[in-house]
Design a protein around this nucleic acid. Structure first.
Lengths: 198, 198, 198, 198
DNA sequence: TATGAATGAGTATTCATTCAT
DNA sequence: CATGAATGAATACTCATTCAT
């Protein structure tokens, strides 16, 4: 019986093998030749499993996203204080050197996605966004349940996500200090409960 | 005697002549040949007034930014209701077809700026951001003075700007509806005055 | 299974195919497009086998040098009279129309090598020079053995090579007549044996 | 009465002002703009006095040649020993840092002259060569008169000049040590008098 | 006489993708 | 299944020279 290689699995294996390569070179500078060599296969073989370069880069990024989904879930299901959870949620891509390397790739992905508006990428972004919205929503609900957040605040989940995106994009500007901006934002969120800004 | 040309003015003239060209082709697809032809000068002449391609594209974008600065100032100094001003502020790049064409270029610029972090571009972005922060701040202060916004809300100017950036970037995703998201965000801002979300 | 190509051989084949092209256009005017077309391959293929334009021009020149090495060796191992060998040695690049076309390329190479002093070119020149020194030395040794040249004359091999280089470079000047200059030089060399210039 | 500027003198003045500039940048990298600025005139003015770039570079080099003619004459008319004179003659372009900077320009000139064979340059080269031949001839004649050189050696003046050219060209190769090569060559020249190499 | 603004030709190089074996 | 040799489109930039003033 011939060995049937699970196509999906092989895709993932090639992608996993190239995580570090992508972090090293970035989306624009990574080449198919490097990918093939790093994955230990021929260039033609890469094209057996992937439609085009975009497709493979995409898959590698997916491996990162999967990791971060876990991280977000851990945060949302942990027993930390609500405010701490929210801080970690927004700070996840900035918290250390490793995260910041991932941030670089995420920004590259965002840049391509912004400019080219490839349907597949958009769908992918929407899916990710939806998942993150879900986790954020959970944290907020729990905060309301715990009595530390005002009821109705969950209506602003989208608003918060947009703030998060702005944070990623504008983190490059010296005028913003990530930690401080997040704290400031959280102050605003938590202020409702205290009866407004008075 | 030789002609003395005002270098700065010629730069601006060439840039102005190429506004439409940039909107048509985008930052990545515009070529020096097109620029020269459109501006009605030789390629060499372009290089008399600009360091390189980046420099000229930059200048064209600047012409747009200058226009928008005026628009933002008009909004902030108009006699509209505070909420209306804020809505227009955040909606400016989405309000009509022309604006959305400019949005495309702005996103391209943002994309490059995000990925390449060229010092000059960063400085430029910071300057723009600073100006917009100023206008936003004015609106907020006025709102407080008018008694429609809670005192202290001006501390969240940065937060609001980051929301605005997120709006620009994530406007490509179908899950967000710009107008609705802005209204939602404004609801949040104005809710403080009403004594929280209760 | 994929084709395995002998990289070194393909390099040589491309280079050989372009010998005439180089003679026709010269080092400075030859283009990669011409090279690719002449060799019957795509431009990209040329870059599969060569680092850059310099590299390929270099290889073509090498094919000429290899030919001339053979010629020099033939001269040095022939059974001609020593004086005749020496004459042919110095006259090799001037002896006929074909040789003079090669001379043109050699001068172009020399010109680049002189002005840019690229390490690789220098090494190459030194290697060639060393080989020619060797052949010249052989001829001289043989002449001494045959009793037509004075012992010790082999110490002047370098001097003779420098004369040869000067001949190549200054052959462009009307005040020198190659054949005569060589004969004159040989007179000098052979005069020692006759007990000086007396 | 209008001031009549002596065209020839203005040419020389511009050329003299650019000596250092040429040494700094070399023939290939010097630009008309730099020349004009350095000479304190407009680009158009340069073209009033010179046909083209070649013409001006040419004139600058001529200023150097004029200097060296003096040096050669000094050597040939000095009261040094004949051997010392000859050594200095051949070593003049290598004797110190300044000379070596001039050597660079001379090699650049030689390179262009070799490859392009522009009639004007050839004539110029022939003139220079003729002058140097004259000085060399003087030294040799004097040596013969002094009884340190064999009669008839003056027939080899051309040969010696060709050796000198080879020295300039091949000085770039590590296998030659200028001083040693000159001494070796002189040994050969002076050996005749001693009755051959015996 | 002096100026300097305007000009435009010309070419190396990369890398995603294909397809013969 | 796997391979890797072959491909070719597409574009920024320099600088000598001219000529209107």
């Amino acid at each position: 019986m011939a060995i049937i290689v699970n196509k999906k699995e092989k895709r993932r294996n090639i992608a996993l093998a190239c995580q570090e390569l992508l972090l090293e070179h970035g989306i624009d500078n990574i080449t198919i030749s490097q990918i093939a060599k790093t994955a230990g296969v021929g260039k033609g073989t890469v094209y057996e499993y992937f439609e085009n370069k975009e497709d493979i880069v995409f898959e590698i990024i997916t491996t990162f996203v999967v990791e971060y989904e876990k991280r977000f879930e851990e945060i949302s299901t942990s027993d930390l204080a609500t405010r701490e959870k929210l801080f970690r949620f927004f700070n996840l891509l900035f918290e250390n050197e490793t995260a910041r390397r991932h941030l670089v790739i995420y920004k590259e992905f965002l840049a391509i996605s912004m400019v080219h508006e490839i349907p597949e990428m958009l769908r992918f972004s929407e899916e990710i966004q939806a998942k993150f919205v879900k986790f954020l929503h959970q944290i907020l609900q729990e905060g309301i349940g715990r009595g530390v957040l005002q009821e109705g605040i969950e209506d602003y989940t989208h608003t918060m996500m947009l703030f998060g995106t702005g944070l990623v994009v504008d983190s490059r500007l010296g005028i913003y200090e990530i930690g401080k901006e997040i704290e400031c934002f959280l102050d605003m969120i938590f202020m409702f409960k205290q009866g407004g800004a008075s």
